[in-house]
């Protein structure tokens, strides 16, 4: 174990971790926003809307995240949309997460007992009222575990942003290795940093689950 490299790496990886946090917070925010909107869209009465949402989700689930990242960073400029690497990374991660969150929301709401829908209909509620006032409030608790899983995937996926030169945790570690040739120690440290971050997320999720009422 090369302890001198480890000592040297701690603050550098700390900076990388901060960068990872920045990217992930932004991506989680936008991803959830879009994901919730798409989730409602998946339950729309209009077939065209449902189809469009499903096609989007299909694409996001059917292509690797790394390819999606490259598409946003290298391919979009060809049609005039040129992001810098930070926003390209946030965009790619958000778009990816939104697809999965949409699915989580859709299946969460569709798993609610059909009787709830019929009761709402029988007192004259319209479809959008049923979704908003009856399905969505009850789906929350079911959604939290798979939602957390998706957010954890997002954090791990942020490691791939190193491929488009985003200076996040993995990239920071790679640079140390390229200079000091200590892959074992550095990759182990990187793993520990990610583990700590994700454990925090998982703890938060369990806390939320306990707090949310059980229907």
């Amino acid at each position: 174990m090369d302890w001198s490299v480890i000592k040297l790496a701690v603050p550098i990886l700390g900076v990388g971790l901060l960068a990872t946090l920045k990217v992930c917070f932004a991506a989680i925010f936008f991803g959830m926003l879009l994901g919730v909107v798409l989730g409602f869209g998946a339950l729309s009465r209009l077939r065209a809307v449902r189809f469009a949402v499903l096609a989007y989700v299909d694409f996001v689930r059917g292509t690797p995240l790394l390819v999606q990242i490259f598409l946003v960073y290298f391919a979009l400029p060809v049609i005039g949309v040129n992001f810098d690497e930070y926003w390209a990374g946030v965009t790619a991660l958000s778009l990816n997460a939104a697809g999965f969150i949409c699915e989580i929301m859709r299946s969460g709401m569709q798993s609610i007992d059909r009787g709830q829908i019929e009761a709402a209909q029988s007192i004259g509620m319209r479809h959008r009222q049923v979704v908003l006032h009856v399905l969505f409030p009850q789906a929350w608790r079911r959604i939290v575990p798979p939602l957390t899983n998706e957010l954890i995937s997002l954090v791990k996926g942020s490691a791939m942003l190193s491929a488009i030169s985003v200076y996040e945790l993995t990239h920071a570690g790679q640079e140390i290795i390229a200079t000091y040739f200590a892959p074992f120690e550095i990759f182990l440290m990187i793993a520990l940093y990610y583990y700590a971050l994700i454990s925090l997320l998982a703890w938060l999720s369990r806390y939320l689950e306990r707090r949310l009422p059980q229907y």
């Binding site: 290298f74 810098d84 690497e85 190193s162 491929a163 488009i164 030169s165 200076y167 990239h171 640079e175």
Partner: peptide
């Protein structure tokens, strides 16, 4: 200063004025 995993990616970034 942007670091890329390989040169082709860096050339692409150059071509796209990144």
């Amino acid at each position: 200063v942007k670091t890329f995993d390989d040169h082709p990616a860096a050339y692409m970034a150059l071509a796209e004025s990144k």
